[in-house]
Design a protein around this nucleic acid. Structure first.
Lengths: 250, 250
DNA sequence: GCCTTAATCAAACGTTCGTTTTAATAATAG
DNA sequence: CTATTATTAAAACGAACGTTTGATTAAGGC
């Protein structure tokens, strides 16, 4: 039985091209013929090596998410160990979760901004098989971080934390997807998608530095007041609550 | 020349069905045959009345966005007029922009949660014609609100405000799209998409009450510090800046 | 009455898609 | 060398898609 030879070169080339094409045009917008022709392999190669187009996308993700999941758990473990039983600070948890993700954008061998953008785009494209895939891939990590947040913010209702985690994931997806309506606001794009790979590192760093305080501010914001009975007036708007949950400082 | 008769009934029925199907399955995932059969019209009816599938989606949006744009400008105008030249509070601006959107979810005649979810889903599905459409539809409103935020937060760099506006749009899109990985966190879904229309109002109200403080907290969060020179250590994470930009209280 | 026009209908068109099939090629093991 | 296996190559398949065509119906205007 022959081992890999340089045939795995074909596999890797397909994965690299698919990652870039899925990022640029989305899953539906990328055809097998685009992928195979740009990777200089036969049309049937994808089905031979990966079984189907859907499995190819999953493999593109698995290649990167394996590192991400392990690293996220590793950092959280290290933080909790050095905290010796006391709850972590919310900023630490966010840095471990979102900061670890951002590090992918800084390192081309981990996928770089190409993979980050693909991730952001795919997370908001809820094809059924994709949702199922991410659900199983993320289950363990999300559970761990959710519990850490519960402990870090004991005064905030758990349902509220879950919702805010949800909002944070949304802001993050948008932030790393990049291909948005931001150019409408600024009058010009954030920067071409097919920009220079050179400053992919610094781009990811800046993005991370901007996103992190935003997420933390949202996470620790005032709790909502559910005034179900009183109708709020139209223009003189209702004031938001002022009972800020304070961050635990161990 | 005959006027509308009750033929416009066909148009409306197509729009209603298309709105719901695009929401549930996305643009690519919804076929013309699905739409026309559910609307009990002939397959050719869509092309006859709207020209193409893409034009149909645009018309589905235009029907709702006309109100949204006008209302957003009206509320902002009213706020600025009653402020008599002094800058608005960030919370007022967010309430005018995002709160107005959320009111659509509370009113079935404005589109309800169905339209909100469609909007959230579509905003993150950057097909080219969709981005072009939203760019032109949102240009004026976003420009006005951007300027209002600049005035409301004079101590925050304008680029930073633009980025945070971007993050806020991401959190909002995710929040109203709903079909996310939140069920992974909670262990069960937020609620079925095809849920009861009865409590669509209260659902939108609760969502708004939860999202708004989050956005405001993120908008007013600590400014990032760009420590380009010093490499941050791995596990003992760098602290975030503490120079909070304070909200102007006129 | 007839003409014009709007609207609906059944049927087909041409394309693109993911996938499969069948054959040919290269490499290894016995 | 031969047999076996892994990979590539060319071609076609069948289904689904958005769209178009041409006939048919219904409704005013004159």
């Amino acid at each position: 039985m022959p081992e890999n030879k340089l045939n795995s070169d074909t596999r890797e080339r397909i994965l690299d091209v698919a990652e870039r094409q899925f990022m640029a045009h989305g899953f539906e917008g990328t055809s097998m013929r685009m992928i195979t022709s740009m990777a200089d392999v036969n049309l049937a190669a994808v089905n031979y090596h990966f079984g189907s187009k859907e499995s190819l996308l999953c493999e593109v993700f698995r290649r990167r998410l394996t590192w991400l999941n392990r690293e996220r758990l590793r950092v959280l473990d290290a933080l909790e160990q050095q905290a010796k039983g006391s709850p972590l600070k919310p900023s630490q948890i966010l840095e471990a979760f979102f900061g670890t993700l951002m590090r992918i954008g800084e390192d081309e061998s981990l996928g770089g901004m190409t993979f980050l953008r693909l991730l952001g785009r795919t997370l908001t494209d809820p094809a059924e098989f994709i949702r199922a895939f991410f659900a199983s891939e993320y289950a363990e990590v999300l559970e761990r971080y959710k519990l850490a947040l519960f402990r870090a913010l004991p005064d905030v209702p758990k349902a509220e934390i879950v919702w805010r985690l949800h909002f944070m994931l949304g802001a993050m997806s948008y932030a790393i997807a990049g291909t948005d309506i931001l150019h409408v606001i600024t009058g010009h794009g954030i920067g071409d998608i097919s920009g220079k790979e050179e400053d992919s590192r610094s781009e990811a760093k800046k993005l991370s530095a901007r996103l992190m305080p935003f997420l933390l501010g949202g996470l620790r914001a005032a709790l909502p007041q559910f005034a179900e009975t009183s109708k709020q007036k139209q223009v003189p708007l209702a004031k938001t609550a002022r009972n800020q949950p304070q961050e635990k400082q161990p």
